[in-house]
Simulated assay, not measured.
Amino acid sequence: MAKAARAAQAWRTYKNVTEPGSPGLGARLRAIPKLIGAVTRGQYPGMGKSKLAMMGLGVLYILSPVDIVPDFLVLIGVADDFGVFLWLMGSLLGESGRYVDWERKQVRAFPS
């Protein structure tokens, strides 16, 4: 992903998180474990297991000492990790926001 595309995605995520009526950053972060559980159990129709697997691979890529572009190539080597990090955070925050909205609708549709 090009630098401009990563920056645009980060900006869209920021705008989405700060939009009035949208789930806030704290709610999105707290929802991530529930989102992962709901996707793996097949309870949340908004995200497939394949996207969750891609996110897992993103985490592994960031944590892995083996990179496509070695980190000793200072600017380029760190930029690929940062690009994956931006994609991962944008995807997680976006998906967790949609999950929080979906969960709220479920509670309203089936009050206890």
Rank of each mutant, 00 (worst) to 15 (best):
Ala79Val: 01
Leu25Phe: 13
Ala8Gln: 11
Ile32His: 03
Lys49Asp: 03
Gly83Trp: 05
Asp101Gln: 13
Ala31Val: 08
Gly90Pro: 09
Ala8Cys: 00
Gln43Trp: 14
Gly46Cys: 12
Tyr14Lys: 12
Val66Ala: 13
Trp11Ala: 15
Asp101His: 04
Ala27Cys: 03
Gly46Arg: 10
Arg41Lys: 15
Ile68Leu: 14
Asp67Thr: 04
Lys34Leu: 12
Lys49Gly: 15
Ile68Gly: 01
Ile68Trp: 07
Ala8Val: 03
Leu57Ile: 03
Ala4Leu: 09
Ala4Cys: 00
Ser64Ala: 07
Lys49Thr: 13
Met55Arg: 00
Phe72Ile: 12
Leu92Glu: 01
Gly42Val: 12
Gly42Lys: 13
Tyr99Ile: 07
Ala79Leu: 08
Ile36Ser: 03
Glu19Ser: 13
Leu35Lys: 09
Arg41Pro: 03
Leu25Thr: 01
Leu93Gln: 06
Asp80Val: 02
Ile62Ala: 00
Glu19Leu: 14
Ile62Lys: 00
Ala27Glu: 15
Val39Asp: 10
Met54Leu: 14
Ala10Val: 13
Asp81Met: 04
Pro111Tyr: 11
Asp80Phe: 01
Ala2Gly: 15
Ile32Asp: 03
Thr13Tyr: 07
Val17Asp: 09
Tyr99Phe: 15
Pro33Ile: 06
Arg108Lys: 14
Gln43Ile: 02
Ser22Asp: 12
Phe82Trp: 11
Thr18Glu: 08
Leu93Ile: 04
Arg12Ala: 14
Ala2Asp: 14
Asn16Ser: 15
Tyr61Asn: 02
Ala109Cys: 01
Pro20Arg: 04
Trp11Phe: 12
Ala10Tyr: 05
Gly90Lys: 07
Leu60Trp: 00
Glu95Trp: 07
Tyr44Cys: 10
Asp67Ser: 06
Trp11Gly: 06
Ser22Thr: 09
Gly21Ile: 03
Gly83Gln: 08
Phe82Val: 15
Phe110Arg: 15
Leu35Arg: 08
Thr40His: 10
Val100Arg: 09
Pro23Tyr: 05
Gln43Asp: 15
Arg28Lys: 10
Gly97His: 09
Asn16His: 11
Gly97Pro: 11
Gly83Lys: 05
Lys34Met: 10
Val78Asp: 07
Ala79Phe: 05
Ile62Phe: 00
Arg41Met: 13
Glu19Gln: 14
Ala8His: 04
Pro70Met: 04
Leu52Pro: 10
Leu29Asp: 02
Asp71Ala: 05
Trp102Thr: 06
Gln9Asn: 09
Gln106Ala: 06
Ala31Glu: 06
Asn16Gln: 14
Gly83Glu: 11
Val78Asn: 07
Tyr61Thr: 00
Ala2Glu: 10
Gln9Met: 14
Pro33Ala: 11
Tyr99Ser: 05
Gln43Val: 07
Gln9Gly: 08
Lys49Gln: 13
